[in-house]
Amino acid sequence: MTNWASVILMATSLHVSAWGQKVVSWDLLAVPYSTTSEGLYAPQFPSWLDRYKNQEVVLQGYLVPVDVATKQYALSRYAFSSCFFCGNAAPNTVVELVFKDQPDHLVTDQFVVIKGILILNDNDPYRLFFIIQQAEFYG
């Protein structure tokens, strides 16, 4: 399932570029971060991320439920089973999703391809480093 979706995304990446959407890889989002004196994380966004800032991007990953009542989900680099409690996850391996239209109930670890506007959050420590606004399923 995962491999098939990856192949589809790669196969369609040219088409995606033709429409002006930038395909973002998780390696690109693996930005360095520091811990503030309050114990919060502060990201340091490299300048090469500027070309993706506030742009429509495409990103693939696994869905993680954050709040079921308000249907908030995040996109994770790693599947939940190999994610948060195994030490792989970090604040730069998850992206906050703000859906354009509220989706029906989704399944944890569902592999999806998301399209939306990438926001680099460098001023709100209560939110994730990356936020995809107007998110919708791609393909």
Partner: peptide
């Protein structure tokens, strides 16, 4: 709610503590 995805990293660094996120457990 986004803090839920920031805290696991902090919990894993604290000895003898286990974080349990109901939303993740029910999701699983």
């Amino acid at each position: 709610k986004a803090a839920m995805l920031i805290l696991p990293n902090i919990i894993s660094e604290r000895p003898d503590e286990q974080g349990a996120f109901p939303v993740f457990i029910f999701g699983q």
